[in-house]
Design a protein around this nucleic acid. Structure first.
Length: 270
DNA sequence: ACTGGATCCTGATCGC
DNA sequence: TGCGATCAGGATCCAG
């Protein structure tokens, strides 16, 4: 479910309900996420006020008076604001019960997500991350430096969180199409102009998706239950076998790092 | 130092 | 209708 726009949409959905609230309780039904939820998380978090909820990469950071909770939605996670008396459904692993009788309910069927504790702002998961894609540090000059010595497929490079965070399979696929770059092109072989275009398109598509409330694929819902924008707006992702909107050529796909990559063989010639 | 591949898990979908 | 194979939005870890 969550690429960066979905995580940001989730954050914006819960902030009005949760920021400034005290955590009455943390109810854990299943600790076995990607990493086990720490056994002392409840003791550490309960009765503390949520000072802010921020996002770094696809991690949601719940800053408390002392320490913070780090939450990742993985591939299939979602947060909903519900009345605490609402009976939990399948895969509702955690409730963060707030002082206003509402709770943040964490559902994650595949359990690739995580909920961790950190005493301060530094945490191993956050320390090696590259720049945020929408910030100025992520620019054409920066990406040119990163691709200069790399023979990797360009798609692997832009999906590498050490290079730039938050660019998942959907938006990487779309941005490469918009920039006219074949996903398997060796990073160092791409012209400076195309790298600049790629940076522009990554920023544009992420901004657009955030403004539209994230991409709806299968079950993604915003925290109020309304769907985000629909997958039909995507140009190539999931359109293998259909025609390119620009040139009518049939969209093909290949596999890069176990991820499906759709592309137009005409517009994204190698 | 890099990089590709395996891996964690459940659910939806598709072909037979 | 049932069953098995295949495919999914992520990202760490490990072997070569």
């Amino acid at each position: 479910m969550p690429e960066l726009p979905e995580v940001e949409t989730t954050r914006r959905g819960i902030v009005p309900h949760a920021e400034g609230q005290r955590i009455d309780a943390v109810i854990i039904r299943n600790r076995s996420l990607r990493w086990p939820i720490p056994s002392d998380l409840q003791t550490l978090a309960e009765q503390q006020k949520i000072q802010s909820i921020t996002r770094r990469s696809k991690y949601l950071l719940f800053k408390l008076e002392h320490g913070m909770m780090i939450l990742h939605l993985g591939m299939s996670g979602s947060l909903r604001i519900v009345d605490q008396r609402t009976p939990p459904k399948k895969h509702d692993h955690v409730d963060i019960v707030l002082g206003n009788a509402q709770c943040i309910r964490f559902n994650d069927p595949r359990r690739f997500g995580c909920l961790l504790w950190s005493d301060d702002d530094s945490h191993a998961l956050l320390s090696k991350l590259g720049p945020e894609p929408l910030q100025r540090e992520f620019n054409a000059k920066y990406l040119r430096t990163k691709v200069a010595s790399s023979k990797r497929a360009i798609k692997s490079v832009i999906m590498d969180a050490a290079v730039v965070v938050g660019v998942g399979n959907i938006y990487a696929t779309e941005a490469l199409y918009m920039a006219g770059i074949h996903p398997q092109a060796a990073a160092h072989s791409i012209s400076a102009e195309k790298i600049s275009a790629l940076v522009r398109h990554i920023k544009a598509i992420l901004r657009y998706a955030i403004n539209r409330g994230g991409t709806t694929l299968r079950d993604f819902l915003q925290t109020d239950g309304k769907p985000g924008y629909f997958a039909q707006e995507l140009q190539v992702y999931g359109r293998s076998g259909e025609c390119c909107h620009q040139c009518q050529t049939v969209i093909e796909h290949c596999t890069i790092s176990q991820r499906r990559s759709a592309y137009c063989p005409q517009c994204q010639a190698e």
